[in-house]
Computed example of a mutant assay.
Amino acid sequence: MIRIDVLERAILGPWLQLTLRWPGELPAPAPGQCLRSADGTPIWPMRPPQAGRLSVLASSCQAGATLDLSGIEGNALPAPEGETLLLAEGLGLAPLIHLCELARGSGRRLLALYEAADTLPFRPRPSRFMVEGAPHGVIAAIPLLEDWGIPSRLASHTDLPGCHEGGLDALLERLPAPSGAMILAMGSPAFIARLAAIAPRLIPLDIEA
């Protein structure tokens, strides 16, 4: 068991965002890997450790001034190569952002699509990037990815402004077939199954809440 200091905490939509003190002697979690708290909660890193700090996202966990972790679990997702389509829902937002940060500025062509449930954990921004095939009016984007120059689009079942009304599977069917692109999907088994029916070559990451 490893005891880690909790430096900051914030509510991010339905989730808890923590900033942890990450000692330099500990390995950096790779995108797709999670931390496991003492109460069994999976905690998903959002970005690589920076200056001894690690930003993570969890549905909930017993965190006070410190957090007890049992270690790093899971297999790392492959790094984006060439043209890459990133698909995520729920807490899959964390590895999606993690992957984008590692790949930004690399010249790789990324497109991130995110499916929200009831609310979004951020305030969407109208995108400055065109996405071929996106329905008219579907312009809402993840603001952090806009800052990084990575196009994104959002889908929601609750008719949020600027978002595609429905699931990512319906939005994906409107876009040109991603022939030859790497496809990474991060979410629940049901979410991954819906997308695999359209994109059977996708690489899945089952996200525990």
Rank of each mutant, 00 (worst) to 15 (best):
M1T: 06
I2M: 11
R3M: 04
I4W: 01
E8A: 08
A10W: 02
I11N: 11
G13I: 04
L18Y: 06
L18V: 04
L18A: 08
T19F: 07
R21S: 14
R21L: 12
W22N: 09
P23I: 08
E25Y: 14
P27R: 12
P27M: 11
P27W: 12
A28Y: 05
A28W: 05
A28N: 08
P29G: 06
A30G: 05
P31S: 12
G32D: 07
L35I: 06
L35F: 06
L35E: 08
R36F: 08
S37W: 05
S37F: 06
D39S: 11
T41V: 12
P42L: 13
I43E: 04
I43F: 03
M46D: 02
Q50A: 15
C61Y: 03
Q62H: 10
A65K: 13
A65N: 11
T66C: 07
L67S: 02
D68N: 13
S70V: 11
S70W: 10
G71I: 07
G74T: 10
G74R: 10
G74Y: 11
G74E: 14
A79K: 09
A79T: 10
A79D: 14
A79F: 11
P80Y: 12
G82E: 13
E83V: 15
T84F: 13
L86N: 13
L93Q: 02
A94P: 00
A94Q: 01
P95W: 01
I97N: 00
H98C: 00
L99K: 00
G107D: 01
R108W: 00
R109H: 05
L111C: 01
L111R: 01
A112W: 01
Y114H: 09
A117E: 13
A117Q: 09
D118T: 10
D118E: 13
T119P: 01
L120W: 01
F122P: 00
R125K: 07
P126E: 08
R128V: 09
F129P: 01
F129Q: 04
M130K: 12
M130A: 14
G133M: 05
G133F: 04
H136G: 04
I139Y: 03
A141M: 02
P143E: 04
E146L: 06
D147V: 09
W148Q: 08
G149R: 06
I150R: 09
I150Y: 09
P151M: 14
S152C: 05
R153D: 07
L154A: 05
H157G: 13
T158S: 14
C163D: 03
C163W: 02
C163Y: 02
E165T: 15
E165Y: 13
L168M: 10
L168T: 10
A170F: 08
R174I: 05
R174V: 05
L175H: 05
P176G: 10
P178S: 15
M182E: 14
G187T: 08
P189Y: 07
I192Y: 02
L195Y: 02
A199L: 15
P200C: 07
L202G: 04
I203C: 12
P204N: 13
P204A: 13
I207Q: 08
